[in-house]
C-alpha cells in the first residue's frame, strides 16, 4: 500500500505541463475567435451577394455607423462588467444631440464649450445613478429607466421641440463619409474609436483601476473587504457610461445632420446587443471593449445586409432578436457547478 501511494504522490506532485491542445483552447477562449469568424462570414456574404458594395464610400459609411454604435456602447461595456445595466443611454444621446445641434449649431456656442457641457451634464447624471444605486441598493435597471424618461423629456422641454438646427460644420466634418484626418482619407470618428479601443484595453488589462472594476463585478462583497471602494467604482462607471453616450449623441447628430425626439432609441437595444454579442457577460472578467466593437461591426453589417435584401423594419428586428438570443445561449452558460472541484 505504502509503495503504491508513493508512486501516486510522485505523479500528482509533478508539474503539469499544458498540452498543445490545452494552450490552443485557452487561446481560443481568450480571443474572440467566434466573433471574428461571424464577421468574416458576413463580409463574404455581403461581398458575394452585392459586389457593388466594395467601394470606398459604402465601406466607410458602414464603418462610421459601427463606430457610432461602438461609442454609444463604450460605457455600457463597463456597466455590464460590474453587473449593472444602463437604460438611460438614449437619454444621454439626446442630451448630446441637443447640445451639439441647438447650442453649438443654432446658438453658435464654441465646440469645446458644447463638449464640456455634454460631459458635465451626462457625467453628473451618470455619477448620480451609480452612487444612488450602490449606496441605497437600488436596481440600476429601474433607476436608469426613470432617468432616461427624465432626460428625454427634459431635453425636449428645454429645446421647445425645435429640431431645425444641425451641428456646426466643424463637428460634422468629424463624421463625414469623405472626411479626412491629417490628409489621410479616413474620417476622424474612426480614429477616435480606434484610440478608445486601445485606451480601454490598456485601462482594463494594465491598470489598478481596471483590476478593481473586474473585482467589483465578480464579487462586490469580497472587493469591498479587499479595500476596493466599490461605491466609487459604481459611480465612476455609470458616469463614464453617461459621458461616452453623450459624446456619441453629439456625433450621431453630426452624422445625421440634425436630431429628433427619438434619435437615441435604437442605440440602447443595439448597443446592449453589441456588448453581449461581443461576449461580455454580466459581472465577470469575461469581456472587453474590443469585443464590443466587434459586436458593433457584426450588427451594422447585419443591418446593411437586411436592408439590402429588402427586408422590412419588423423583419430585421426579428433577426436582431434571434442573434441576441443566440449570443445569450453561447455566453450565458457559466461553468456548471459539477465541473468545479
Amino acid at each position: 500500500m505504502t509503495t503504491t501511494s508513493t508512486v501516486v504522490n510522485a505523479r500528482l506532485d509533478a508539474p503539469v505541463v499544458p498540452s498543445r491542445w490545452t494552450k490552443f483552447r485557452f487561446f481560443v477562449l481568450r480571443l474572440p475567435i467566434l466573433q471574428l469568424s461571424v464577421l468574416l462570414a458576413l463580409i463574404l456574404w455581403l461581398v458575394i451577394s452585392i459586389p457593388a458594395f466594395v467601394n470606398r464610400l459604402s465601406i466607410v459609411s458602414v464603418l462610421i455607423l459601427a463606430a457610432l454604435l461602438a461609442l454609444a456602447a463604450l460605457g455600457q461595456t463597463f456597466v455590464v462588467l460590474i453587473g449593472g445595466l444602463d437604460l438611460a443611454i438614449p437619454g444621454y444621446i439626446i442630451v448630446g444631440a441637443f447640445i451639439s445641434s441647438n447650442l453649438a449649431g443654432g446658438a453658435g456656442w464654441p465646440i469645446p464649450l458644447a463638449l464640456l457641457m455634454t460631459v458635465v451634464i451626462c457625467g453628473l447624471v451618470g455619477a448620480f445613478v451609480g452612487f444612488v444605486s450602490h449606496r441605497y441598493n437600488v436596481q440600476p435597471l429601474v433607476l436608469t429607466l426613470g432617468i432616461n424618461a427624465a432626460l428625454v423629456g427634459g431635453t425636449l422641454f428645454v429645446a421647445k421641440a425645435n429640431f431645425t438646427s444641425a451641428p456646426p460644420d466643424a463637428l460634422r466634418a468629424l463624421t463625414a463619409i469623405n472626411g479626412t484626418t491629417f490628409g489621410l482619407p479616413i474620417p476622424p470618428i474612426l480614429l477616435i474609436v480606434l484610440a478608445a479601443v486601445v485606451l480601454v484595453w490598456l485601462f482594463l488589462t494594465r491598470t489598478a483601476s481596471g483590476r478593481r472594476l473586474y473585482a467589483t463585478g465578480t464579487n462586490a462583497r469580497a472587493a469591498e473587504l479587499t479595500r476596493v471602494h466599490t461605491g466609487k467604482v459604481w459611480t465612476l462607471t455609470f458616469a463614464t457610461s453617461g459621458i461616452t453616450a453623450g459624446i456619441a449623441g453629439m456625433f450621431i447628430a453630426s452624422f445625421s445632420a440634425g436630431w429628433s425626439a427619438n434619435i437615441g432609441e435604437p442605440y440602447f437595444f443595439t448597443g446592449l446587443a453589441a456588448v453581449l454579442l461581443g461576449g461580455t457577460t454580466f459581472g465577470s472578467i469575461h469581456g472587453s471593449y474590443t469585443r464590443t466593437v466587434l459586436g458593433a461591426l457584426i450588427l451594422t453589417l447585419l443591418s446593411t445586409i437586411v436592408l439590402s435584401v429588402g427586408m422590412s423594419e419588423s423583419e430585421s428586428r426579428i433577426i436582431y432578436g434571434f442573434v441576441v438570443i443566440a449570443a445569450a445561449f453561447l455566453y450565458g452558460r457559466e461553468r456548471h457547478v459539477r465541473n468545479r472541484f
Partner: peptide
C-alpha cells in the same frame, strides 16, 4: 463569499 474572486487567477 468574502475573499475569493473565483474567476480570477491565483496571482490576481
Amino acid at each position: 463569499g468574502e475573499s475569493l474572486f473565483e474567476q480570477m487567477s491565483i496571482q490576481e
